[in-house]
Lab assay of single mutants.
Amino acid sequence: MTVRVDGVDYEFSSLEEAVRFALKMAKSKGAEVQLHNGTFHVE
Rank of each mutant, 00 (worst) to 15 (best):
V42Y: 05
E16I: 09
E17P: 01
K29D: 13
Q34A: 10
M1G: 08
A18F: 03
V19G: 03
V33Y: 03
M1P: 11
Q34G: 04
A22E: 02
E16P: 04
Y10T: 01
V8K: 10
H36Y: 11
S28R: 10
K29P: 13
R20V: 09
H41A: 05
L23Q: 10
V33R: 01
A18T: 01
L15P: 08
M1C: 15
G38R: 03
V3Y: 02
E17M: 05
K27H: 15
L35P: 03
G7T: 02
K27V: 15
E32S: 14
V42T: 05
V19T: 07
D6N: 07
V33L: 06
A18K: 01
E11A: 11
K29N: 12
G30K: 09
V33Q: 03
V19H: 10
F12C: 07
A31Q: 07
L35W: 12
F21I: 01
F12Y: 01
Y10F: 09
V8M: 07
A22K: 02
Q34V: 14
G7A: 03
E17W: 02
M1H: 14
V19S: 05
T2A: 04
F12D: 00
S13Y: 08
E16C: 15
A18I: 02
V8N: 04
M25Q: 04
T39Y: 10
Q34H: 14
N37K: 08
L15H: 11
Y10A: 00
V3Q: 00
V5G: 00
L35K: 04
H36R: 13
T2E: 01
F40Q: 08
G30A: 06
A31M: 12
L15Y: 14
V33S: 03
E32Q: 14
S13N: 11
E43N: 12
V42Q: 06
D9P: 05
A31T: 12
S28H: 14
V19M: 11
N37Q: 07
K24W: 14
R20G: 04
V33A: 04
F40N: 05
V5N: 01
E32G: 10
A26C: 13
E43G: 13
L23P: 00
A26T: 03
V33C: 15
D9Y: 11
K24C: 14
Y10D: 00
